[in-house]
Simulated assay, not measured.
Amino acid sequence: MIQFRALLSKELKEAFRDKRAMMMAMMMAVMAPVMIFAMSKVMIKEAVETPPVYVKVTGAEYAPKLIKSLKNENILLLADVPNDEKTIWEDRALSITIPTSFNQDMLEGKPIDLYLRADFSEKANMSPIRRIKTTINHYAQAIGYKRLLVRGIDVRLLQPIKIIEQDTSLPNSNAMIISMMLGLYLLMAAFMSGLPVAIDASAGERERNVLEMLLCQPVSTLKVVAAKLCCASLIACIGVLLTLGLTTFSVSFIDLTKIGASFNLDAFTITALLLLLLPICFFASALQLFVAFQSKNFKEAQSMVSMIIMLPAMVPVIMMFVDNKPKWLDWLPISGQSLIMEDLFKGLPVSWSLLCFTGLVTITMTFLLVLLMAKKLRSEKVVLALS
């Protein structure tokens, strides 16, 4: 035990001595809350507000009521665009062409073709185009209903079945975008925060000949690996705690009531998240140490280990496109924690047995990686990076 404490103290001193590496390790914890705050602000603004849309209308004099309907939805003529936004809307080139026979065709009940011209592949045009199409369709639908009423036909005949939506989701479920981002960033923090320490404690020490001198001492390779794992995992846990704390603080400045949502991390949720993420921190650090020890030099270790941080980003995204998820995904590292976090943020009951089993599987895989690293460090090929 004395040897392990000495090794752990040595690893922690080396880790905290490198200020640049520590700044890189904590970058995810600082950047994630800022990104969540900024993206949430933008999404709420788009969901609630209806910013003005400026469109060039040819033949506006033939359909004054249509132009009025567009104006009521804050869809204005290009001639009214402010000078500071004129270039932007001219580049978007949204235009509607109204035929000269609009009034005559309307009186005769003939179908009327309106031409909406725009670059439909341009992302900036998607929201304005959707608003223009919705407004015109509602205007056309209102005219159709009036024509039926004039002919003595009840417009309710057009909708024999009416769906009444009853949302059973909890208030915090409406903030699922924020929750999904937070869950993703927490997993990323678990993988990224301990990354610089794991690379330096393995490939870095080998290049500085520290690893060879360390293994020459009367200490087991298992204790050496365990000390390095605990150091990297501790940094990863600090990163997760910072991400969690700073995100909770930043989200408190977002007015979620505009979208009828609430977001609150109580003591129960925080405890469950920590129980989920603690095994992931150890698993991520063990995986990074294992890959770094297999690399021939420090640069190769950086390249190889950096690929591992794609796992927490890829796995949840892939699962989003899988409708019928296999049961074994609930047990694996990353996927199991991701699914449980999703239920947790939705306010659904947490299966503690599944949480414990997923954590046990993650810890078991971590322990196997530690044993495999301890065995490989007894070989000169790994210690000296021989071919």
Rank of each mutant, 00 (worst) to 15 (best):
G245V: 08
T247E: 08
T248I: 04
F249C: 08
S250Y: 14
I254T: 13
A261I: 05
D266N: 15
F268D: 12
T271I: 13
L274A: 07
L275E: 05
L275Y: 10
L278S: 12
I280Q: 09
I280C: 09
I280H: 03
A284I: 03
A284P: 13
A284Y: 04
A286D: 03
L287R: 07
Q288P: 07
A292I: 05
A292F: 02
A292H: 08
S295Y: 02
K296Y: 01
K296T: 11
N297F: 02
E300A: 14
A301M: 05
Q302W: 04
S303D: 03
V305Q: 02
S306T: 11
I309G: 09
I309S: 14
I309M: 12
M314R: 06
P316Y: 05
P316E: 03
I318S: 13
I318P: 00
K325E: 00
P326N: 04
K327R: 12
L329G: 06
W331N: 00
L332W: 01
S335E: 04
L339N: 10
M341P: 09
D343E: 13
D343C: 11
K346A: 09
P349N: 06
P349L: 00
P349S: 12
V350R: 07
W352I: 10
C356Q: 03
V361H: 05
I363W: 08
I363L: 12
M365N: 02
T366W: 00
F367K: 09
F367N: 07
L369Q: 11
L371K: 15
L372C: 11
L372R: 13
